[in-house]
Design a protein around this nucleic acid. Sequence first.
DNA 1: AAGGGTATTGAATCTAATT
DNA 2: CAATTAGATTCAATACCCT
Lengths: 377, 377
Amino acid sequence: MATVLLNKPEKAKMHATNVRETLPLGQILDGDCIAAMRSIPAKSIDMIFADPPYNLQLGGDLSRPDGSAVDAVTDDWDKFESFATYDAFTKGWLAEARRILKPGGSIWVIGSYHNIFRVGTAMQDAGFWILNDVIWRKSNPMPNFKGTRFTNAHETLIWASMGEKAKYTFNYRAMKTLNDELQMRSDWVLPICSGAERLKKGGTKVHPTQKPEALLYRVMLATTNPGDVVLDPFFGTGTTGAVAKRLGREWIGCERESNYREAALERIEMALPLDESALKTMQSKRQAPRVAFGALVENGYVPAGTTLFDKKRRHSAEVRADGSIVAGKEVGSIHGVGAAVQGAPSCNGWTFWHVDGEGGLTPIDAARQLYLLATED
Amino acid sequence: MATVLLNKPEKAKMHATNVRETLPLGQILDGDCIAAMRSIPAKSIDMIFADPPYNLQLGGDLSRPDGSAVDAVTDDWDKFESFATYDAFTKGWLAEARRILKPGGSIWVIGSYHNIFRVGTAMQDAGFWILNDVIWRKSNPMPNFKGTRFTNAHETLIWASMGEKAKYTFNYRAMKTLNDELQMRSDWVLPICSGAERLKKGGTKVHPTQKPEALLYRVMLATTNPGDVVLDPFFGTGTTGAVAKRLGREWIGCERESNYREAALERIEMALPLDESALKTMQSKRQAPRVAFGALVENGYVPAGTTLFDKKRRHSAEVRADGSIVAGKEVGSIHGVGAAVQGAPSCNGWTFWHVDGEGGLTPIDAARQLYLLATED
DNA sequence: AAGGGTATTGAATCTAATT
DNA sequence: CAATTAGATTCAATACCCT
C-alpha cells in the first residue's frame, strides 16, 4: 500500500473536505436544536446565526413574543425558576454551537432586553469573545400604544468569536463599500420585515418574528465568505437559508415545527442565487498579493538612486539597489525607516514615501498598483 | 396631652418627610459606593443613575493610522480579576441600590458590551424589572482604527423598576414634546462629551469617561419629577449632580477619588439653568437621513446583479453584493465609476445611473426615494 | 472678520505572516 | 511560542493658526 506523506495543513484541509461531505447542507433538521446539532461533526461550521426564543413558561414550553403574550409568572421565586430554566436552556444550545463551530468561526445571536443580557452573559461564560454588539434600529417599529415606556425600537445582536485570540472573518472593505465609504457602525438602520417579504398564509403571519432578509444579508456579507457553511439552530421560516442561497453560502437549519419547515423550504426554493460576478465584493489590501519594494526597484518602477519624500517634504530618503532606503543614519525597509524618521511605532512606507514627478509628489503605492496591473496573471 | 389620629397614607407621608430630612442632599459621600449607600435609609431614593466601571479588558497600546497614540482607560478602578469578581461587585452594589430605592423608584445603568450583559443579568436576578433598554447612538464615536470590527458607536442603558408590578415615573408627554411630537424611541442620538462641557485641568481631561449632560437630561426629565431625590453611586465628575441642579431635582453622589469629588463640586457650584442653545442639543434632530447605495442593494430595491445604464445607454455597469458597481475595468461606488466612465472629475451616481424597467429607464434616485418612504419614522 | 488648513481627540476588549 | 517584520488603518467635532 502506497504511503502518501502529508504535512499538517494539508491533512487539516483534507479532513475538512471529508467532514464537509457529511454535512446536511441545504437541509432543515427536524427536532430540538440541541439534539439536531449533536448530529453535526465538531469544528465543521463557519458561522452560526441564532434567533432563540426568549420566554420560557414554567411547563418547560418555549414560546415566542407576539406582542400580547405576557409572562404569567408573578412572584419572585417563580421568576428565579424561570430565569434559571432559561439560562440552562441557553447554556445547553451554546455548548453544542461551540462544539460544531470551526476555531475560526463566529456566532451571531439576536434578542431583546427580555433575554439578551442572559444570552450575552452565557456566551462570555462559555468562552466566546464578544467582537461587537450590534443594534438593529427598526425604522418603522410598533408604537407603544399605552405611552408607558419608550417605544421599543431596536433589537440587539451579539457577534462573537471562539475566544480572545481566535481568528474570525470580517470583510471590512465590503462593509465600508456598503456604507458609502464610511466604516460600518455598530448601529444598523433597517426596516422591519413587511410587505411581499413577509410570509403569510390565509392573511395571517406564518411566523411572529420573521427577520428581514436585509439583516441577514449584512450579517453574512460581513462575516462569511462565499461557500462557507452557515447554521441556524432556530430556523423558523428560513430567512437565514434564503439569504445564504442568494449569497452563495451553504446553509443548515434546525426547526421543531413542521409548518415553519414547510414554509421555509418553499421559500428557499424560490430564492434566486446571485451569479458569481455579482457576489464579488471589494477586496481589502490585506488580501491583495504582497509586493516587495525591491521588486519595484529591480523592474525600474522606482530605480535605485531615486530620492523619496514624505508628503510635506519634511523627510527624504534614498533608494538603494536592494530595495532598502537610507535617511541620514537610518537604513532599512520603507516601513522601518518611515517609522524611525517620524519617531512613530510603525509606518506604512507605501503611503508615507513619495516620488517627485511632473504632477508633484506621488506615493510609491501608485507604482505598486502599476506593477500589480502589469504582472496580473 | 392631645392625641392626633393619623390615617395610614398620612403616616407614610410624614415618615417620608422625616427620612428626607436625614438625607445628605447635595453632598458627595466619600468612599466605596456600597459603604456609602449603607448610610442611606431604606426606601428613600426616587431614582438611581449608575455608570459603573465597564471592565474593558484592553490589550496593548493602540495607535491611530497617523501614528499617534490613543489615550485609553487604564485606571485601576476599571480592572477586575475575572468575570466572577466583576459579577460579585455588581451584585453587591445593586443590592444596596435596591434597599435604598423607594418602591416606586427606578434605576438606570449604563454600559458597553464588555459589562452590560452581566449587569443586566444581575439586575434581573436581583428582582428589578427591566422597562426598556435604551441605546445611546453616538453621533461622533471613536473610529475602529485597525479596521477589525464594526465601529463601536453606541452604549447601552438599562432602565428598570423595582419589580413587575411596581409603579414608576414616566413623563410620556415631556418625552413626546422633546421629540417633535413623536413618541420617544429606545434609541437616542447624542454627541459624546467634548468641547466646553468636557472638564479639563492643565489641558487634559479630568475624567476619562465623562458623560454628556444631554444624556442625563433626558434620563431625568423622563423618569423623575421636580424635587425627586436622585442618587449616583459612581459620581465621577458629577454630571448627574449638575443636571439634577439644573432640572430642580435633589442629588446625592458617591465617589472614592478626591480629585473627581473636587472637580464635581466646583462644577455643580457653577451649574446654571439650561439656556436655549443647550436645550436645542437635547432635542432629537430630525435631519434628512443619509442613504447609502448599499442599503438599497441589501434591501432588494436594486438587487445585486442588476445592470445599470446611463440615460442614453452609452455606458453600463453591474451591481455587486456589497453595493460596489463594475463597468469594464472600473470598480467602485456609483459616483466614482460614473465619473470614470465619462472621464469626468465627478459625477452624481444617483441621477447618472438608471435601471431598465417596464416604463423604460428609471434613475436609481427613484429607488432611493422609495426606500426613504419605507424607512421614514 | 471670515474662511481655509492643520492638529488634536474620544469607554477600544483594534494585525498577520514569517522566523 | 516568542520575537521579528511587513504593512494596513480613522470619523466627527473642536481648537488654533494663518491668510
